[in-house]
Every structure is written in C-alpha cells, then in structure tokens.
Amino acid sequence: MKKTLSILLIGALAISFSGCEKDKLYEVNEETLLAPNANKTKLKSDQQYIAILYANLFQTALSSDNLFEASQCVQSIGDKDLVHEVLISNYMNQSGVILPTNDDMRADVDGFITETYNRFLVRNPTEAERQYFKNYINTHPNVRPELVYFSFALSDEYQYY
C-alpha cells in the first residue's frame, strides 16, 4: 500500500513539474528597414567631393595643389550644382578618365549598373533602381557611359557619405 502511494506521489510530482516547463519562444529584434542610401547623412566638404570625384573618374589621386585650387574654384561660385557640373565637364575633357566603352556597357547593362552604383554611391542598386537604369539605357541609344557617370557624379546622394 505504501509502495503504491509512493509511486502515485512520484507520478503526481513528475506530472506537476513537467507542467511548469514553458514552451520556448523565439523572437526577433525590432529593426527599422531603411533604403540602402538612407545612412548617408554627412555632406562631403568641397575638398572631399573633388578628391573622391577625381579618384572615381581617373582611378588615381588628385595632387594636393590641384585639390586646393579646385576647391577654391568651387567656393568661388554660389550655385554648387552649377560649379560641380562645370568641374565634371572639365574632367571629362581631360585624357585619362577611365570609362567603359559604349559596347561594353550595352553588352552587360546589368553589370554596368552595379559597377556604377558601387563606384559612385558605394552600394548596390535596388531592384527598382536597376530596372529604371536598365530601361533608360536600353531605350536611349544616345546614352553612353560618360553621361551616366556624369549624372551619378552630379547627384545629391554623391555629395553625401
């Protein structure tokens, strides 16, 4: 009788303890999903903009003397969009700008878009961006890599890091 009672007691305890064990609950941290360009919040200085622009176009560094003079030129004109445009136009008129050929671009538009985003905006394009540029390039036969590079160098996002 005692033995039966003991077995029942152990059994009851075992059941009650097993009832305390909670189910494991797995959660994820709350994260705000941002666009890939959303973390660029700092405006480049004139010198940073010029140095990075030159490096992106020529794949080499601009000398410090030239960097200083070019930044003075940017400061001497009030419309920054305008002076950037003139500066880029000057660089595009120099030999040594490293550009893919038009044939290369059109042979692999996808690759060109990715490479351009990586080079200028230091990120990959979103699918929407990729699609836009793909359509734009394919439907505008007069668009060549130089014009695409120009637009990226002139973009607002390029002025931030």
């Binding site: 660029k40 734009y136 014009l147 120009f150 637009s151 990226f152 973009s155 607002d156």
Partner: peptide, 13 residues
C-alpha cells in the same frame, strides 16, 4: 539625359 538620370537619383535620395 544627364539631368533626367540625376533627377531620378535625387528623387530616390
């Protein structure tokens, strides 16, 4: 075309 592509990038930004 330069401005059109720039404005697309600017809108996104």
């Amino acid at each position: 075309p330069i401005y059109q592509m720039k404005y697309f990038l600017d809108n996104n930004f």
